[in-house]
Simulated assay, not measured.
Amino acid sequence: MLRRRRLPALAALLAAPALARAETWPARPVTVIVPWAAGGGADTVTRILAQGLEQELKQPVNIVNRTGGNGITGHAAIANAAPDGYTIGTGTSEFVNFRALGLSEFGPANLDLLSRVATLPAGVTVQAGAPWRDVGAFAAALREAKRGQFTGSGVGAGGSWHLAAAGLCRALGLPADQIRWIPSVGGAPALQDLVAGGITVFTGSPVEAQSLVAAGRVRVLGVMAESRMSILPEVPTLREAGLPWTYANWFSLVAPRGIPAGVRTRLLDVCARAHARADVQEMLRGRGIVPVWDGPEAFAAFVGEFGQTSAVLLKELGLGRG
């Protein structure tokens, strides 16, 4: 009997450190790791959300860009961080396909999937001086070109924008690899290559090209969205041009597995509040980014479905394993 009466007290004593961590978190700055280069879509989304996080956390939020390995380096850095709630990261669609591509055994199970935070439709962006004035003209030239004559970039092989290009080619009745892919560490360097004439087309999000569009250095011919983007209302969707293809990349909040339950609950609550802030929503939408917050369970289900869909294109590209 005495032993039984001591059990609740012992359980409370063991739980006390965890409760204390949850109550004091965050006691110092929080770091968000971005697996892609500064200036790209993932970086843009993260920095907007970080502004809301700083307001909700009452702590500085440090953004760290960890590039390399087609996104593996940054995602692995998130997974390997101390599971204390002080290091989280921006997960991008690439981490779903690392295993399918044979790049790494790293996959969704290595991360704590917190929630999607935004989606970005892909586009067809070319040099301002390119001969094509619309998607129809570009599509006609792509059909007539030799396989691999047109080149694209914006992410590593098999990444989001590569799948966007492959799907565009298939929608035109062409091989998935009609556009030869030049791997890149992100949208920003790919756009510089586009301006310099190193690639033919950028199939990443027009959001990443905004400053170059404004400067008259590149032109967006079409967007792979269900409807026109608010930031480019004059640019038609591919569907309007008669091409049945849409594609949107997505960005998420992920964390190392094993964060104490109390801290994780507070982390999710703070991130959800930061995401819902009117200023954050306005900044995202003002850049053509679609805010999304689906939470851990729905996000995990989405990841499973996304992996199955992207595996089909990867196999057609000759990149899928198995």
Score class of each variant (00 low, 15 high):
Gly158Cys: 10
Gly102Ala: 11
Val96Glu: 15
Leu243Ser: 03
Phe302Gly: 08
Asp43Ala: 12
Pro8Asn: 06
Trp293Asp: 05
Gly85His: 11
Pro26Leu: 11
Ser230Asp: 13
Leu53Cys: 09
Gly69Met: 08
His75Ser: 09
Val292Arg: 03
Phe95Gly: 03
Glu234Ala: 10
Arg116Phe: 05
Gly307Gln: 08
Ala15Trp: 14
Val207Cys: 00
Asn65Val: 06
Ile259Trp: 01
Ala276Lys: 09
Thr265Leu: 14
Leu268His: 09
Phe150Ala: 11
Leu221Val: 04
Gly41Leu: 00
Val263Ala: 08
Ala81Val: 04
Ala171Trp: 04
Pro296Cys: 13
Phe306Gly: 00
Thr200Glu: 14
Thr31Lys: 14
Gly123Ser: 15
Cys271Met: 13
Glu305Trp: 03
Ala118Arg: 01
Pro17Ser: 06
Ala20Pro: 02
Ala171Pro: 05
Val124Trp: 11
Val223Gly: 02
Ala122His: 05
Ala261Tyr: 02
Ala300Pro: 04
Leu314Glu: 03
Leu57Ala: 03
Arg99Phe: 09
Ala109Cys: 01
Met224Gln: 07
Leu268Val: 14
Gln210Pro: 01
Ala16Asp: 12
Leu114Asn: 07
Thr309Asn: 13
Leu10Ala: 15
Pro206Asn: 09
Val201Arg: 03
Val263Lys: 09
Asn97Arg: 15
Glu234Ser: 09
Ser211Asp: 15
Ala255Ser: 06
Glu23Ser: 12
Leu113Lys: 12
Arg170Gln: 11
Thr151Trp: 06
Ala100Lys: 10
Pro175Leu: 09
Gly102Val: 07
Arg285Leu: 14
Pro29His: 06
Arg4Trp: 13
Glu94Arg: 05
Pro17Lys: 04
Leu14Gln: 12
Ala248Lys: 02
Gln149Asp: 11
Leu53Lys: 06
Tyr86Asp: 03
Trp25Gly: 11
Leu253Val: 12
Leu10Asn: 02
Gly304Arg: 15
Gly52Val: 02
Met224Asn: 07
Val235Met: 13
Ser160Thr: 15
Thr67Gly: 02
Gly85Asp: 09
Ser310His: 08
Ala128Gly: 10
Leu317Val: 00
Ala12Met: 10
Leu113His: 07
Phe299Ile: 04
His275Val: 00
Thr46Glu: 12
Glu54Met: 15
Pro244Asn: 15
Gly320Cys: 08
Gly198Asp: 12
Asp43Pro: 08
Asp43Lys: 11
Arg133Asn: 13
Leu120Arg: 00
